[in-house]
Simulated assay, not measured.
Amino acid sequence: MQELAGRVAVITGAASGIGAAIARRFARAGMKIVAADVDEAALAAVCKELVDAGHSAIGVRTDVANAAAVEALAERAYAVFGAVHLLCNNAGVVPSGRYRAVWEFPLEDWHWSLDVNLYGVIHGLRSFIPRMLDAGEEGHVLTTASVAGLISGSGSAVYSAAKHAAVRVTEALYASLRERNAPIGVSLLCPGLVNTRIYESERNRPDGLRPTDGAAPETAELQAVAASLYAGAMSPEEVAEIACQAVLDDRLYVLTTDSFDDAIRERMEAILERRNPQFATLLALSRRDVGERESA
Score class of each variant (00 low, 15 high):
A243C: 05
A175Q: 03
P211K: 09
G153T: 07
D261P: 03
E241A: 14
T212K: 14
R197M: 07
A227R: 14
N89Q: 08
V64H: 03
R275W: 02
P191W: 02
D207V: 12
V46H: 01
A233Y: 03
L248Y: 06
C88H: 04
E273S: 13
S228G: 13
D261M: 13
H55N: 11
V51W: 13
A246G: 11
G149C: 06
E71Y: 03
G30E: 07
E237W: 00
S16Q: 10
L222F: 15
L177Q: 06
C190P: 05
V34E: 09
R180A: 11
R267A: 15
V247S: 09
P95V: 05
R287E: 05
R287C: 09
A57E: 04
I242C: 01
S127H: 06
W110D: 00
D261A: 15
A83K: 06
I33N: 00
G155R: 05
L248T: 03
I122E: 01
H164T: 04
W110G: 00
I151Q: 11
M234C: 01
A69I: 05
R28I: 01
P217R: 08
R287N: 07
A77F: 01
E138D: 13
D262A: 14
S176W: 02
L229H: 03
K32I: 04
L118C: 13
T196N: 03
G155E: 13
H55Y: 15
V290P: 06
A42R: 14
D207I: 08
S156M: 08
I129M: 06
V51M: 11
R180E: 11
L43T: 07
Q223L: 15
P277A: 13
A77P: 08
R98L: 09
A182K: 06
L87R: 03
Q2S: 12
L86D: 03
A14E: 04
C88K: 00
F26H: 11
V46Q: 07
A79G: 15
A9Y: 07
D249I: 07
V84P: 01
I264W: 11
P217T: 08
L222K: 14
A165W: 07
A240E: 00
L4C: 10
S146R: 05
A220D: 13
V10I: 05
A101F: 15
K48V: 11
V38S: 14
E3N: 14
N89C: 10
I11P: 03
E40K: 09
R251S: 11
L142Q: 06
G232I: 02
C190G: 05
R61V: 15
G97P: 05
D249Q: 10
E200V: 08
R131K: 10
N90R: 02
P191F: 02
A41I: 09
D39Y: 02
R131H: 07
E273C: 10
A42Q: 10
I242P: 00
V239G: 02
V290M: 08
P211F: 05
S16M: 12
P130D: 08
G139I: 03
